[in-house]
Design a protein around this nucleic acid. Sequence first.
DNA 1: CCGTATCCGAAATGATACTG
DNA 2: CAGTATCATTTCGGATACGG
Lengths: 126, 126
Amino acid sequence: MEYEHTCMIRGDGGRALRAILDQICNKWTLLVVATLDQGILRFTDLHHQIPGISQRMLTLTLRNLERDGLITRTVHAEVPPRVEYALTPTGESLIPPALALAGWAIANAPGIEASREAYAEYRQNG
Amino acid sequence: MEYEHTCMIRGDGGRALRAILDQICNKWTLLVVATLDQGILRFTDLHHQIPGISQRMLTLTLRNLERDGLITRTVHAEVPPRVEYALTPTGESLIPPALALAGWAIANAPGIEASREAYAEYRQNG
DNA sequence: CCGTATCCGAAATGATACTG
DNA sequence: CAGTATCATTTCGGATACGG
């Protein structure tokens, strides 16, 4: 039992954590951050590398990350325009904990899926 | 740069991770899991210890966690009824990565807040 | 005590069209 | 190329009332 440590989560009723989680755990943020871990990328690069994301959601996600200081946005005065995105040190520091969670998710995905099927079965037949 | 590792996140377009994240990163799940880390608790215990949660959302959150095999739900045939919730080993194994993320969130909250204020300032004045 | 049922408003996301 | 604007849809969560 590691109850002493979970005060980090429960501390202020979870407000500090959830303020960040709200930002991190939307549909695209972690995917954008992970993609930018390969280095400087342009808008179109990201759009191509992240399957399914719309221009609108990519723009919104990038703007929020920039606002929070996790990425930089550099506009080059050229024609055609070139805009480059890169992780800041803060943004890079998010990668290890994100990987920890991703590792857990992937390791437990089969078990969770099995549990869901068993649960659905149980709800149907009793 | 740790790009080689982020394939865990980007692997399948992030689907494996997001399937879990959808479940984990709603408003209450992590808070319920962290609270249950102290041991077996009843519905009312949880309701009292988690400020602001409604009966409805507590029920929904607990049902989803039970469905995914992260908690057990034990009904005792008594009057008045007694229902006990506890983490499964899978549920407990979520605590360390959750703490890693919480640690990051709390460590970086001041910097992010500062960045947000600077960004708002910038948007107002130019 | 431990929920379920219903309704409603807010927020997130997607589709589509248009622009400097 | 790198967005913005607008609209429709979906999903989430809160409030309230009721039930075994």
